[in-house]
Design a protein around this nucleic acid. Structure first.
Lengths: 160, 160
DNA sequence: GAAGAATTACTCGGATACTGCGTGTCCGAGTGTAACGGG
DNA sequence: CCCGTTACACTCGGACACGCAGTATCCGAGTAATTCTTC
């Protein structure tokens, strides 16, 4: 079990787009910025568009642009946009199957499975921690580590 | 991204083994208990043995047995035993690559990646929640939902 | 010189292959049990 | 009747296929900018 690479790509792309307020950036430029396969990055960005985080502009001089400020985009929003909102732990209800499960009356299974509940509590903690961090926070931490981050990014993308 | 089925199987198997204190149980019996593929369940149980949670007894009348009481086994122990201790989010350090990454001096990357840190905080919360719940707790919750759970399991496995 | 139409170049978007891991299955090595024969 | 030996049945353990989701790629539809022609 591991998160797909798309999450890391998406967050970095969002931060880079935030440095370049307004101006749309093409997939090829963003991909070259971090040595990523352009076509696959494009698919990731499309998922962010469907989630309402980005907006796309077609045609020449087109590209992707932030649909709303990063302060309003949580890390959970990004993860859900890329990975989908399926739960990490999907209970198959095996407690109800087999020679053991059949020994219990159906009324035993009206309460949720205790294994599912335990895993669900941990997953809720994970989601909560993700929801409490905005991508803007991550951008700020990045900027704190590296001087002139915004300026460097703008120059690297030829918009400085 | 989703946890493998083996986690659910492992927890149920551990709880069932806990009802039958001492007596070793063969894979085939545990598998029949919840309608699981025996050979694959066997592989899962082997992983629990390597983690020191179960112990295996070869030969006729052999099988698997708890190596230590479930109070000392956390849900995190089970997840790590099945899924491995790899982090959920593996940072590829793409921040250092490409036209953008190359614009930053190496000294910028002595601090950990902010994206990695953000994802790591959420993962830590997940692990903490898992570590705070023992499998015995889950067993207790299961027993609270279903009357005579232990007796039913022992009868289903022919040890009643 | 200005306006409009055709052309061009560039972009996104989805349809199409490939790879790796989770899933599932099979067979062999090893061991405790039981049966059997001898004392 | 008791003990040693032999054969057996059962178990785990690891080696071998399969399928699906994540990964990666390519090509077509559509649009804005540009160019050319005409007035």
């Amino acid at each position: 079990m591991r998160t797909s690479k798309g999450v890391e790509w998406a967050v970095h792309a969002l931060i880079n787009l935030a440095w370049l307020q307004e101006a749309p950036v093409a997939t090829a430029q963003l991909a070259a910025g971090h040595d990523l396969p352009p076509s696959y990055l494009n698919k990731v960005l499309q998922q962010l568009v469907r989630a309402g985080i980005l907006e796309s502009l077609p045609g020449a001089r087109g590209g992707f642009r932030l649909a709303r400020p990063l302060e309003t985009v949580s890390m959970l929003d990004v993860v859900v946009a890329i990975e989908g909102d399926e739960p990490l732990f999907r209970c198959a209800e095996i407690r109800q199957c087999g020679t053991i499960g059949e020994r219990f009356p159906d009324s035993s299974f009206t309460r949720p499975c205790s294994v599912k509940s335990a895993m669900g509590r941990a997953e809720a903690a994970w989601r909560k921690a993700l929801a409490e961090q905005s991508v803007a926070d991550v951008q700020a931490a990045f900027a704190a580590n590296t001087p002139n981050a915004g300026k460097r990014v703008r120059r690297a993308l030829g918009r400085g």
